[in-house]
Simulated scan of single mutants.
Amino acid sequence: MPLALLILYTIFIGLVTLSPQQLDTGPGSFIAGLLDFLASHRLTAWIDYDILEKLANVGMFVPFGFLVSLQAGRRRWWLGWVTGIAFTCLIEGTQATLLSPTRFATISDLVTNSLGAGIGAVLALIAMIIWPPRRDDVPIDHVVR
């Protein structure tokens, strides 16, 4: 199951980050409405577009790092972080070269995406420590008769 989710989530990230156009941020868009909502509350008024984008980048890569680490297992949990860094390098490189007229590669995206993948990998490690794989109580007889 984690592999199927990982494949679907990787496709989702690819669609969001490698489409020729960025998400709509104009007046009346979901993002504009969210920023208006955040600005209307004292506790969240400090969140502007740049901060929201950075938080979204971190948040988008947490599940990726988590799912890769679950797939890799407890001994190689760090692959979630390393794979996330490699994936974001691929994304940013593609944006800088093939999508350069419409998309922009930034060091900030590289850092925030990598941070998200790292957080996801650590969360997966914690989950694998807390909930180790089940073992059957009945030993399996491996002798062929």
Rank of each mutant, 00 (worst) to 15 (best):
A121K: 02
T102F: 08
T94G: 11
G59F: 06
V68N: 06
R134F: 13
G93R: 04
S40P: 00
D50A: 13
I91R: 04
A45T: 06
R103G: 09
W78H: 11
L18M: 07
R42G: 15
S29F: 06
I140N: 11
L15S: 02
Q95S: 07
V144L: 15
F66S: 04
R42M: 12
I47T: 09
G28M: 03
A72H: 02
G73Y: 00
P20A: 07
T94S: 14
W81L: 12
D48E: 11
N113Y: 05
Q21T: 11
L6D: 01
F37L: 14
D24T: 09
P63R: 04
L125Q: 06
A124H: 01
L38D: 04
V16H: 08
L34T: 12
V16P: 05
I91L: 09
L79M: 15
D141L: 13
R42K: 14
I13A: 01
P139E: 13
V143Y: 10
G116K: 01
Q95D: 12
P139G: 09
A121M: 04
A4K: 03
V82Q: 01
R74K: 14
W46I: 10
F104Q: 15
S114H: 02
G93P: 08
S108W: 04
L15T: 03
L67T: 01
S69L: 01
G65H: 00
A72F: 05
Y9G: 06
D48Q: 09
A121Y: 04
L3A: 14
M60E: 04
V138C: 09
R134D: 11
V143A: 12
I31F: 01
L15W: 08
P132N: 07
G65Y: 01
